[in-house]
Simulated assay, not measured.
Amino acid sequence: MLVLLPPSETKASGGDGPPLSLDTLSLPELNPVRAKLVDALVDLAGDVPASLAVLGLSERQAGEVARNAELRTSPTMPALSRYTGVLYDALDVPSLTRVERGRAAERLGVASALFGVVLGGDPIPAYRLSGGSVVPAVGPLGGLWRPVLTPALAEREVIDLRSAPYSSLAKIPHAITVKVVTEDGSGRRQAVSHFNKAHKGLLARAIVRSRATPQARNLVKIAAAAGLRLEPVGERAFELVV
């Protein structure tokens, strides 16, 4: 079972791994598109104003362009250490045991505008590219990724925790979906926006701490063991009530 997380705009700096080698990444069938995008971003980084416009950045964020310029030469670190922010703070990989970190590396994947999907242990450099970006040399990312990413995920059991911009990069109609909701005094529910990522991080943490292989039939039990209220609302759809 693959738990597919959204990425974060922010990335940790540095790393102690060797420079990017696409051959070390999971899902090698994605490598031709990965290579095309790496080439396009490195080339685009040669024009800083154009890069800022494409990436939706301000001049104060020009350091992000410099990261893209060094995609082929900068050090790498495991994907779950590279991504930062609310979700990854809640997941809190450093506090997991060695065995749990091993599960995280295998069970957790991250949707990526640049790499399509990486597993938690895949070594990647810092970069900047969002799911909604349109890179001049390749066009909209959805049109680039869907033809290869959708079939790559078709044979995998997936718990889909992606955000909307990354859901558009590949359709996974068979996936288990989880919606984070809040419940008022009358029992009416509405989607949670502000703390959505934090609760998804807690659910992902519960899944990697569990010895049981996550499946639709035991997901509620896995969540409950971590103090989370997960309820089925369809055969493969759940709501995480917070």
Rank of each mutant, 00 (worst) to 15 (best):
Y83C: 03
L57S: 08
L108Y: 04
A50W: 06
R103A: 13
Y83S: 01
P7S: 08
E239C: 12
V65T: 03
E59D: 15
A152I: 07
Y166Q: 01
P32K: 13
T24A: 15
V135F: 11
A212F: 03
R107A: 10
R189V: 04
K221Q: 15
L219Q: 03
A191F: 02
A154P: 04
M1G: 11
K221W: 11
D43Q: 13
A45M: 12
V48Q: 11
L91W: 01
L169G: 08
V54I: 13
L153F: 02
R128H: 12
G120N: 06
R103L: 10
V110G: 05
T213R: 14
V117N: 02
G109L: 01
A105K: 11
L129P: 00
A53P: 11
F115C: 10
S130H: 08
R67V: 09
V178S: 05
P7W: 06
A40I: 07
R162L: 06
D160T: 01
E70D: 15
A223D: 05
M77W: 03
R209W: 05
L219S: 07
V48H: 09
T76R: 12
L57N: 02
L91M: 09
P94I: 09
E231K: 14
R60E: 14
L25K: 07
R67L: 14
P32R: 13
V180H: 00
V110K: 07
L57C: 04
M77S: 15
R67F: 14
S167F: 02
A90L: 05
R107I: 12
R128K: 10
L52G: 08
V110L: 09
V158N: 04
S95A: 14
A40R: 09
A137H: 11
A216D: 10
S21M: 12
T10D: 15
A170E: 01
V118E: 08
D92W: 11
E70Q: 15
A225L: 08
A204S: 10
Y127K: 07
D122F: 05
V99F: 02
P173A: 03
R217D: 15
S168V: 12
A237H: 09
L129H: 01
G139V: 07
G131F: 11
L52N: 06
E59C: 04
Y88C: 04
S95N: 07
A90T: 01
A90Q: 02
S26D: 14
K171F: 04
P19Q: 00
E183Q: 14
H194K: 05
P125L: 08
K36I: 11
T24R: 15
S186K: 10
L240S: 01
K171H: 06
S13D: 14
P49S: 08
E155D: 15
E29G: 14
L55T: 06
R189A: 00
D92F: 10
S26I: 12
L71K: 13
W145G: 01
I159M: 05
V42L: 03
S58I: 09
S8Y: 06
L202H: 07
A45Q: 09
R156G: 00
V93F: 10
